[in-house]
Simulated assay, not measured.
Amino acid sequence: MDNTTLSQQAAEALTYLQKKVPAELHEPVVGITCGSGLSGLAESVLPEPRCEIPYTDIPHFPPSTVHGHAGKFLFGLLELNKKPIVLMVGRVHYYEGHSIQSITIPVRLMKRLGVETIIVTNAAGSLNPDYSVGDLVILNDHINLAGLAGIHPLRGPNADDFGTRFPALSDAYDLDLRRRAHQLWKSLGRGTKSTRRLHEGVYAFVGGPSYETRAECRILRSFGADVVGMSTVPEIIVARHCNIRVFALSLVTNNAVLEAGPRGDDIAIQGSSAQDLYKAIEKGKANHEEVLAAGQNAAADVQQLVGLLVRDILSTDHAH
């Protein structure tokens, strides 16, 4: 699928949504992507007016198949008499079998809807020993391993109606939005009321769905990555290609295992039982259930920070 076809598909999806979404919710200026375990962000939206549309109903839209991702667009308001917003309640991933281009159709569609700023959240594994499970990380850069290998959402003919052939990414993560987020976090007094901390760091994108090996984690850390995950970066690239401002936030849901682990010829394990060997090699093993659990535990803080940031954007950038 080339990018010209994607432009046509985005236009057809837009036509469908414009017929389904109430007029007062047209032209949302902020889009939010809810990552694993973070769909509770949808609770911030007022009960009326709102409109929910499953991905499976939208033409050309890739379905979400991962547990913890509801798979729907939600249009609504955070406050009455303010500009509407749109949320992706659950995202689609490359590892689900979709092409790298098709998983970014939602971002192109957001651009067509009128979105000027996108807030992307995700669950990520920590590579930085200073980070703890439950901490939040504002992204200020990324390492696109798949893209460096040629699996890139802008590969193929350029969609000129969206952006330039060679978009720069050195400014991908908006500095003003990052500054505002830090200020808002401080205003919440999280430093005294909670052990949850807010950092800034670099996100490494890997294809998934398997979690990274110990050696891979050490490589990523040596490259300068602070967190690692299976999403976000393709969306960021396409958002910047579309000239959409970007704010990205990772929730640390597990600590990646960086140490090499026991060797088979280690004297210390000779004579150990099978159960003891299992415990030794399984230490720190990641699983999706802990990702969802960490998301649920952090939901209130994430919702509050993102909600305040969106309100700030709507009040200062789009004052009525």
Rank of each mutant, 00 (worst) to 15 (best):
I219T: 13
R197G: 05
P49I: 07
P28Y: 09
Y173D: 00
G224S: 00
A70K: 13
D176C: 08
V291S: 01
L127Y: 11
T232A: 07
H142G: 04
R112E: 15
E259Y: 12
P59Q: 07
R311V: 06
I236S: 02
E235Y: 02
A294T: 03
D276R: 13
K193E: 12
A42M: 09
I103D: 00
K193W: 00
Q296V: 11
Q183S: 15
T253V: 12
L220S: 04
T33V: 15
I269T: 14
L169C: 06
E52G: 14
L87C: 11
D301V: 12
E212W: 11
H142A: 01
C34Q: 04
E282S: 15
I151L: 15
S44Q: 13
P49Y: 06
F75L: 08
Y55R: 06
L74E: 05
Y278P: 05
A280V: 08
G134T: 02
P62I: 10
T65F: 04
G156H: 07
E79S: 13
V227I: 08
K19R: 14
A10M: 06
V246P: 02
A124E: 10
G207S: 15
V21G: 04
L25W: 04
I58A: 10
K83P: 01
E290C: 05
D317H: 15
Q101D: 01
I313H: 01
P59N: 11
D265P: 03
S272T: 14
L139D: 09
G208V: 12
V257D: 10
L127R: 10
N255T: 13
E27C: 14
R218N: 08
E96A: 07
A299C: 10
E52Y: 09
D176L: 10
A146S: 14
S132H: 13
A256R: 09
L80W: 03
N254S: 10
R214H: 07
I100Y: 08
A268H: 03
F205N: 11
E289N: 07
A319L: 13
S222Q: 13
I236P: 00
H142P: 03
C242N: 00
A159F: 10
I138C: 10
A172W: 03
H182E: 09
Q275A: 15
T164L: 13
P129L: 14
K283R: 14
L41I: 09
A204H: 05
H67T: 14
L220D: 05
A149D: 06
R311P: 01
N128I: 09
E200W: 02
H288E: 04
P106I: 10
L198Q: 00
V29L: 15
V310T: 06
E259L: 08
T213E: 05
V92W: 00
L14C: 06
C34H: 06
L169P: 00
G90Q: 06
R108K: 05
R112S: 15
E48L: 12
D312R: 02
I53V: 15
V233H: 05
G35E: 07
S210Y: 10
A70S: 12
R311W: 01
G271K: 10
V89E: 11
A70L: 12
P28E: 07
L314H: 00
T213I: 08
Q101T: 12
H288S: 13
M230P: 04
T164V: 15
L258E: 08
A274M: 14
A268I: 13
P157H: 14
G201K: 08
R245P: 04
